[in-house]
Amino acid sequence: MDLMLLAAEAEAAVPKWGIFVDVEGAISGLLTTLILTGLTYYWITAARAGRNIPSIRRLPGLDAITEAVGRATEMGRPVMLANRRDGLGDVETFALWGYLSHAATLAAQYDTRFINLTGSHLVLAVNEAVIQQAYLEAGRPDAFNQDDCRYFPSNQWPWSSHCAGIIMRERPAALLWVGSWSGEASILPEAGSQIEAIQIAAVTTTGQLPFFIASCDYVLMSGEVYAASAYLSKEPVMTGTIVAEDCAKLLLMAIAVLGALVEIARPASQWMTNLLKF
């Protein structure tokens, strides 16, 4: 029995195509990475060569950031951007820096106080630099206030209680919720709506989206959250990466339809499924 198990293990350890890890989806996963990288590279090169690339549709939530910062300026109240649980290497954090930079630049230009709350001390190190850079680019480096870049540990309910307290005490006129959220989503946006702040959410956690939809003025969801950085930069190269992403979506739709047609024509053949498992 032991020998059989050893033999099975030895067999399982044979690399796919001689060099790749023998796990489900290793080759198809690699191909996915290569196709997506290839598409992105193609559209970036096209943009750099000055070829015409399609434009991106408006994302109303992003346009509303300018309106919200403007309103905060009129009311003499701060702008606040919060993110609790995303860590330094999380993809949500990459998106967060796009929003942070944009909102902080606007706040600096409008001479409005900007507060940032985070639950990670490592993310804080970058956030401070991003905000400082935004103030520098807006020509107002002296207006940067380190005390408004705030960290408190990301433990769900203590973080939320402090955030809810800050909302009531500081009364920001514009509130931005960015990244992934959990149960606190049923409290914080509603606290924001009680002080009549304009609220914009860019949320990646589908399960928490309904609470943001019920309380916020604008909600960016699913892929919209990440498209923001490219949208905000308005640079053709960055737009190219979104076009590449959309090409991948169309490809995905075609594969899904093809997979379904194969299943209808030859039930239980699992042809496409097995291909994607390889």
Partner: peptide
Amino acid sequence: SIGYSIGYSLAYSPRPFLKEFRNNFASFG
């Protein structure tokens, strides 16, 4: 740290994605 996370995500994230995606047409009728 960021480089590490990027490499990890480029290598591993397509696998669960493909697993989820292929359920769209795993059985049809």
